[in-house]
Design a protein around this nucleic acid. Sequence first.
DNA 1: CGTCTTATCGGGAATCATTCCCAGTATGAC
DNA 2: GTCATACTGGGAATGATTCCCGATAAGACG
Lengths: 139, 139
Amino acid sequence: MALMAATQQVKRRATNQGAAVKDALAAEDTFRSAQDVYATLRANGEKIGLSTVYRHLQIFVDDGLADVIHKPDGESTYRLCGDASTTHHHHLVCRSCGKAVEIEGPAVETWADKVAAQNGFTDVNHTVEIFGLCASCAG
Amino acid sequence: MALMAATQQVKRRATNQGAAVKDALAAEDTFRSAQDVYATLRANGEKIGLSTVYRHLQIFVDDGLADVIHKPDGESTYRLCGDASTTHHHHLVCRSCGKAVEIEGPAVETWADKVAAQNGFTDVNHTVEIFGLCASCAG
DNA sequence: CGTCTTATCGGGAATCATTCCCAGTATGAC
DNA sequence: GTCATACTGGGAATGATTCCCGATAAGACG
């Protein structure tokens, strides 16, 4: 299970709700929670249910359109990140406003694989997230 | 808040429950959830409440005695890891049995700080966890 | 266009981990 | 011993996420 990232997109119907969720995510470059996206959509007058928001968010992740980050308090946050063809990357996230910058660290990738191999671990993947305060939130 | 890791241990009473929770964690080198620790203790005949398990687990983290990892499904897992004086480190965790190996990557630390600084982020910290299958679970 | 099949909706119930509340209990100080 | 109070624990409360399932609408076909 989960040996490969699920990148294969199956046939899906185009619905207003699905587009609305995607637009809501696309409007910001920050990681946002399902609850947050739902609240925003309702505030905008969208007619959509919470279940549907969760459903689409998960679909985006399955299709490789979005990345997920679990905040320290356990809440899941989502952000659209280049499609599946984009290179594997990590994030530098503002702890205050949620703004995220995509970052790459080739050295980290190889280091992770090497360490895992040295300890006899296989089928390896890793999570690397850097949290901090962005310039505008620093004040 | 949280500018410094809470390493300063305040006065605490020595209780059976606290010792029991610590022993339960010390008995394994794996990351274990609060629910799991609670179940184990009860199974061993310990008289302890779930609230108390959560309370002590959090205390260990605050005192720098334990590390936390949030599993992909959001559940928090804990593991005793050298006291506060020990060097900052990360983990190589078996996705199947939860066994964890403490690892260090000085290069990663400096890389993380550099990337953050380049993007104007301050008050930085990071999470780096490597997941895989340990040799014994690989079969 | 109508019709039909069925993926998708949505809203409320159900789960589940974690936190809160607070009266009862036991630890450590004097 | 005695006392102040930190610690307990069981049940209620919270909050995010998932489930369930009848209602709705997308898309294929004629």
